[in-house]
Amino acid sequence: MASETSVSAASGAHGDGLPPEGERRRDFLYVATGAFAAVGAAAVVVPLVNQMNPSADVLALASIDLDLTPIQPGQAIVASWRGKPIFARQLTPQEIATANAVDIKTLRDPQTLAERTKPGNEKWLITLGVCTHLGCVPLGAREGENRGDYGGYYCPCHGSQYDIAGRIRGGPAPKNLEVPTYAFKSPTSVTIG
């Protein structure tokens, strides 16, 4: 590889045996050779970098089907999607009312519950179980876990508080819990991703 750079640099060098005549620096041939070598080196770098991107088998697992039937009102389940936890929660009517009663102008990341759910399926709140601060898994999806001051999720790493709609209400996290791309296949099952 050293020779590649040195040939392109050859244009400027005058070896002992070189006659002084001729301005080699601008010699088209050397420039063309050097340019070609540079293009070739760049073409080799692309696959060497791209190999670190997700492989075909990883990409093939990018979407999953989730059955919602086992989730009772007021409860949540944890599923796995792309190697990350998914929280799927069935809200009770009171919880929906609580969430809608919040004045969203006071929120750090203003969103209504309706914006975070699918039309006609407001009771199904599906979010990533990944704190938007530094990626820990918040508590609150399983029975008996600390759900924080706002009754939603509580991240034990740095104390972020999420409300029942998964919106950030306190602590260092900047954003609401992310809602993944999903679609209802039937009233009780969704395809995520």
Binding site: V7, G17, Y30, A32, T33, F36, A43
Partner: peptide, 19 residues
């Protein structure tokens, strides 16, 4: 690509050594 690069390399080599 490599054939062209090699041809250029050969011409450069001849030119460097011409003297």
């Amino acid at each position: 690509f490599l054939l062209i690069l090699t041809a250029l390399g050969y011409l450069s080599y001849r030119k460097v050594w011409a003297d």
